[in-house]
Amino acid sequence: MQKLKKYLLQAAAFLATLLAGTANAQFGHLGYAELPQLDGGKTVLFYPTLAEETAVRQGPFEFSWAADAPPSFSNGRLVVISHGSGGSPWVHMDLTRTLVHRGFIVAIPQHQGDNYQAHSRPGPESWARRPLEISRAIDAVASYPPLQNFVSTDRVGIFGGSAGGHTALTLAGGQWSPDRFKAHCEQHLKEDFNSCVGFTTRLRGNALDYLKLWLARRVIAWRFSDPTPQRYTDARIRAAVAMVPFAADFLPASLAKPKIPLGLIIAERDVNQIPKFHAEAIAQACEPRCEVLLRLADAGHGAMLSPMPPLAPGSIEFALLGDPPNFQRATRVNQIHQAIAEFFAQHLLPDR
């Protein structure tokens, strides 16, 4: 009888922790699996497991997880992460671990032609394809046999930063077009140069700037004149968080009333996507029907990345992604991750 009472108390404590979804909820270790994509890429999958983790290395990063381990208890909800342009799953591993420790299952698809292994189709061409790739990732998780008793895909969350934030805004009901991208860059090219040309070059205040601006205008006018409205939603996605998104090409009215709960994270020292043209513009369009989870006065564009990849001093990546002086990365990044996890807990878990 005493053992039964002890078991019931343990079960009740576990259930209370599960329903509360608190930051201290621990759902075992990090399980890992790879799901093949139709385009030849792979979606990486993370989930709670009781199996022991082992050390692994991915490029410059060192992690630990339990590969192909049996799943354990979870809260039954899936969050899909859309990586940034040229990005990888590995720069979102700290957020992933936070989410898994809150009981979520996390999938990170590889965006075709715009990832760290293949970067030939960034920008509007990728943005049009990304939301469908999120849907396919949800399909893949739903049909993955080991998880079929642990996950329900009727209430899914989407998180994205930068180009991934564009994905999240689209799935929240946003409408955009390549022609709006072109119009923004024609009007604000010098002010928002990095958004319009990506990581190819920078303005440096010298005689070459005129040539860079001239060439950028020609390329943008040639490639991005299609006025066709782009929109895509998936009824399974029920909450979205967009961090430092590229957003200047959205029709503001399309996000005035987001179709699902939408959270925004704004880094006020972002030099890659200037907030007034992007995240702040969306906030002004959708508040109070969306929620600004955090305004980070001391953060730059790279605050969405954790762990931060090694950035060579003097490189374009260092200039656009490096942390501003006085940015307390360890404290701030944990604050960001907890805010994202709490937003998804509020909107995806049935008893919140």
Rank of each mutant, 00 (worst) to 15 (best):
248 A>S: 14
163 A>R: 00
175 Q>T: 15
127 W>T: 02
200 T>V: 09
124 P>A: 11
303 A>S: 12
71 P>R: 07
313 P>T: 12
74 S>M: 08
310 P>T: 10
300 G>S: 09
306 S>V: 01
45 L>S: 02
137 A>T: 06
260 I>N: 02
10 Q>M: 14
88 S>F: 00
177 S>F: 06
221 A>R: 14
7 Y>T: 11
51 A>M: 04
145 P>F: 02
129 R>L: 07
210 Y>V: 15
236 R>V: 07
36 P>N: 01
290 C>K: 04
259 K>Q: 15
259 K>G: 13
150 F>T: 14
30 L>F: 13
80 V>C: 01
168 A>E: 07
122 P>F: 01
297 A>H: 14
224 F>W: 15
6 K>D: 15
323 D>S: 08
301 H>C: 04
161 G>V: 02
209 D>S: 08
173 G>I: 11
4 L>M: 12
228 T>S: 10
178 P>Q: 12
35 L>H: 00
81 I>C: 01
3 K>V: 15
89 P>A: 03
261 P>T: 05
25 A>P: 05
233 T>E: 14
348 L>D: 04
230 Q>Y: 06
111 H>A: 00
8 L>N: 12
56 V>N: 08
68 D>T: 09
179 D>M: 11
186 E>P: 03
31 G>R: 05
47 Y>N: 05
307 P>V: 03
104 F>A: 07
337 H>D: 07
75 N>V: 14
69 A>M: 05
105 I>F: 06
113 G>N: 00
97 R>N: 11
212 K>L: 13
23 A>Y: 06
47 Y>D: 03
306 S>G: 04
279 A>M: 10
142 A>C: 03
227 P>W: 05
286 C>P: 04
72 S>P: 10
207 A>N: 12
64 S>Y: 14
91 V>I: 10
126 S>E: 00
18 L>A: 13
274 I>Y: 12
345 A>P: 01
15 L>Q: 15
296 L>P: 07
125 E>H: 09
225 S>T: 08
208 L>R: 14
108 I>G: 00
221 A>I: 03
121 R>I: 03
48 P>N: 10
231 R>E: 15
238 R>L: 07
24 N>M: 14
93 M>I: 12
319 A>M: 08
131 P>E: 12
73 F>R: 14
246 F>D: 09
213 L>G: 03
29 H>P: 05
293 L>I: 05
87 G>A: 02
338 Q>R: 06
13 A>K: 15
330 A>P: 09
64 S>F: 13
124 P>W: 08
86 G>P: 02
260 I>M: 07
108 I>K: 00
76 G>H: 12
113 G>I: 00
54 T>Y: 12
100 V>Y: 05
10 Q>K: 15
165 G>P: 08
150 F>H: 15
60 P>F: 03
186 E>I: 09
210 Y>K: 14
241 V>W: 07
337 H>A: 08
345 A>N: 12
90 W>N: 09
271 V>C: 13
198 G>L: 01
203 L>D: 08
228 T>V: 10
146 P>L: 08
247 A>N: 11
205 G>H: 08
74 S>C: 11
227 P>Q: 07
344 F>I: 13
256 A>R: 11
157 G>I: 05
122 P>R: 02
106 V>I: 07
190 K>C: 04
51 A>Q: 06
340 I>L: 01
217 R>P: 02
111 H>D: 00
112 Q>T: 06
77 R>H: 14
46 F>I: 08
51 A>Y: 03
